[in-house]
């Protein structure tokens, strides 16, 4: 039997395979510009969206991606399911599996749960957000967004700012960016840096001012309040002083540099209201909506990869 193609993280993907996925995303980007934004390549395949944790963009993005490829997608809402009657999650999964699904997209707040899940189901599983661990499709769409903007990757300077401790986006991004030859720095106070962070190849700064003028990509992370069981930061005021992007810092950025954020933005915390309101005016600089748009093409590539 051929090994099923789970995408739980991107560790086993070679540089060439990552580039292949991005080329494929390019082809899908072209399809998304057509009048008929749909190709029949996954016709007859059934995909289930299993989100045990809230999501807007990732869930909808996967749903659009699946439909653009002509697959049938079913949204599973744990809150309206037999889980509420006390069925265990693993039994729920076996029930779903009995219905002959071809692929499962899953998000769960317990780190590592998705790996356990993937081991117990014979069809490919795509990680759409694994607790504090990994978010591989976000990392791919971030990389693709950077590549489309600069037409290169090697040597670009990326500064990832904010809640590194609780962010699966940060972990997946740092690993993928390093693999692809980008130079990654993180900006966070020590209480928002995970233990054993030295295993990641990224220099730590504590003040955004230290990196603002040299970064090609300023990657603002969302404060993960839902994952913070204690208060990690004394006050919004202090966060603003050391970590936030505001108008005066925007002006210090390199010409041609870009700003990214995985969304949803906590306005007034990671990014000030004023800067958010400038999105339309400086759309060459603020790439948050481009990330969302690219997400569909990248997820089409991922689904195509996993099912072909």
């Amino acid at each position: 039997m051929v090994e099923k193609k789970d995408i739980l993280n991107l560790d086993k993907f070679s540089i060439k395979e990552i580039n292949d996925l991005m080329n494929m995303a390019d082809s899908f980007t072209e399809i998304l510009k057509r009048d008929v934004k749909k190709v029949p390549v996954l016709r007859g395949k059934t995909i289930i969206n299993l989100f045990f944790e809230p999501s807007t963009r990732t869930k909808v993005s996967f749903e659009i991606a699946a439909k653009r490829l002509s697959a049938d997608l079913i949204n599973f809402s744990p809150n309206l399911s037999s889980l509420k009657k006390g069925e265990s999650e693993i039994d729920t999964l076996k029930t779903i599996n009995a219905m002959k699904i071809d692929l499962v997209i899953i998000r769960h707040s317990d780190s590592g749960y998705i790996n356990y899940f993937a081991k117990n189901i014979p069809v490919p599983v795509i990680n759409a957000g694994d607790g504090k661990h990994e978010h591989p499709t976000q990392a791919l769409l971030d990389l693709y967004t950077i590549y489309k903007n600069f037409s290169k990757l090697e040597g670009l300077k990326v500064a990832i700012v904010g809640d590194i401790l609780n962010s699966r986006v940060a972990r997946s991004d740092i690993k993928l960016f390093n693999k692809m030859g980008l130079d990654v720095k993180v900006v966070a106070p020590s209480m928002l840096i995970p233990q054993n962070f030295s295993c990641f190849n990224a220099k730590i700064h504590s003040n955004i001012e230290e990196v603002i003028s040299e970064a090609d990509v300023l990657y603002m992370l969302r404060m993960q309040f839902e994952r913070q069981d204690k208060k990690f930061y004394p006050s919004t005021k202090e966060y603003n002083e050391f970590l936030s992007l505001n108008l005066s810092r925007l002006n210090k950025m390199k010409k041609d540099s870009i700003i990214m954020h995985p969304g949803p933005v906590n306005r007034g915390i990671e990014i000030s209201d004023e800067v958010m309101e400038m999105q339309e005016i400086v759309k060459d600089k603020i790439k948050i909506n481009t990330q969302v748009a690219n997400g569909v093409a990248v997820r089409m590539a991922v689904l195509y990869y996993a099912l072909s």
Binding site: E17, N23, M24, S27, I31, S308
Partner: peptide, 9 residues
Amino acid sequence: IKSDVNITD
């Protein structure tokens, strides 16, 4: 499995 997809233009 085809990974080298060409452009459509």
